[in-house]
Amino acid sequence: MSLTEALKPLLAARDQINEIVVGKKAEVHLALVSVLAGGHLLLEDLPGVGKTTLAHALSASLDLDFGRVQFTSDLLPADLVGVSVFDPSTRRFDFHRGPIFTQLLLADEINRGTPKLQSALLEAMAEGQVTVDGVSHALPKPFIVIATQNPIEQSGTFALPESQLDRFLLSMSLGYPDAASEKALLGARERRQVIAELKPKLSSEQLLALRQQADGLHASAAAIEYAYALINSTRSDKRVRIGLSPRAGIGLLRAAKAHALLAARTHVLPEDLQAVFVAVTRHRLVLAADASGDGAIVSRDLLAHVPIP
């Protein structure tokens, strides 16, 4: 089967999502890149711009179980991962799975959860398993977390530690739709109803196979050199206090490979690295105290200045 053919269901899923989340083609594309690269996605945005809709549409189109947890400061880790309960009839502890046991988890307003809760999620994201009472329970495959946080409202929130931010492969913000899309949205049917009617376009087995293919994509020495130049530029820039970690570098290349695969290419171009660079770096860069702008602005500036070797 040729690559183009193997990609067809995924591209069909993309088109379907684009019909639901209107006017956000680039963001939908990045979300798919994240899924294909086996990473987790962080959405930083105001409420009501379509974060949940995107997550729903993704799970429906890709045939993934969907779970949703609204993070609050009184939510306990056990509420997320599950709890062991003594069963008198069998005289044993049974593990009751929490909502995390799903293929696509929407962690809403993740920065409202306590650090304890956040670190429970962290382990799950990093290891693909949860440990309760010393017993490890594997999470389903694929396991994808889409977390959202409101960048404006900061009262009563716990800022995510850098180590946890580093676990998200990509981050992006959706923003308001353009005028035409928003008017279309106003005139259209209720989203939930539409999503409920969506048909999955590919199975999770197919998705996992594509993931494997993306992982094995060829990155030439020249591409790797450019990736390194990009990563290294964040470490010497005056505006940045903490540059990218080697893990971020690995993530950059993985995301670029997924991006190349989506374009039905078998090798990574500088353009692939450029397409994902801002999404990979914007939440990871810790800016210097006197730097203006945010991570995304610095990233875009670096992209425009680092020469391609």
């Binding site: 171009l269 500088p270 353009e271 450029q274 992209l303 200045h305 680092v306 020469p307 391609i308």
Partner: peptide, 8 residues
């Protein structure tokens, strides 16, 4: 532009 990829 040295920072531009060949296809772009």
């Amino acid at each position: 532009n040295p920072a531009e990829g060949p296809m772009d």
